[in-house]
């Protein structure tokens, strides 16, 4: 992080990418607010330095919602200070970031439960209730 320019490291380089992404986000958020299509930006597909990324995260800031998912590795989602602009960071095995994106959408789809999962859950729940009502006590079920 030396500023004398003798041996620049990658940490120091800002390419201006954060600002150009902010402009794209502003434009798409306007479209969404007027009833247009949601939009998403894949951050891993864009060449950004560490500094670019930090700049973008700082400019977007944090809003009212923050969610942690635990499915096929962890995920962290938060709404930025701009309503409808979400930062979504998925981790793969270990602590590696597997994918990272900005979604411009009312609610990111991954937060909703899927119809088939709800159907399977409903079946399981009613099976469990039926078992609980049987007169002979069961051994503790395996899928607790």
């Amino acid at each position: 992080m030396t500023a004398d320019g003798a041996t620049p490291t990658l940490y120091d380089i800002s390419t201006g990418m954060a600002m150009s992404l902010m402009q794209e986000i502003a434009e798409r958020l306007g479209i969404l607010a007027e009833g247009g299509e949601p939009h998403a930006i894949d951050l891993l597909g864009i060449p950004m330095s560490k500094r670019d990324r930090d700049e973008l995260e700082a400019m977007l800031g944090r809003g009212e919602v923050e969610v942690t998912l635990d499915v096929a590795g962890a995920s962290r989602l938060w709404e930025t200070q701009y309503s409808g602009v979400w930062w979504i960071r998925h981790f793969g095995e270990g602590e590696r970031v597997a994918s990272e994106r900005i979604e411009i959408v009312p609610v990111p789809e991954i937060l909703s439960a899927h119809r088939l999962d709800m159907a399977a859950a409903a079946r399981r729940l009613s099976d469990e209730l039926a078992q609980a009502n049987e007169p002979i006590p069961q051994e503790e079920s395996a899928h607790v």
Binding site: M1, T9, L10, Y11, S49, K50
Partner: peptide
């Protein structure tokens, strides 16, 4: 010597 904590280093 590089900035190991930044996640991007030399």
């Amino acid at each position: 010597d590089s900035t190991a904590s930044s996640g991007v280093s030399a």
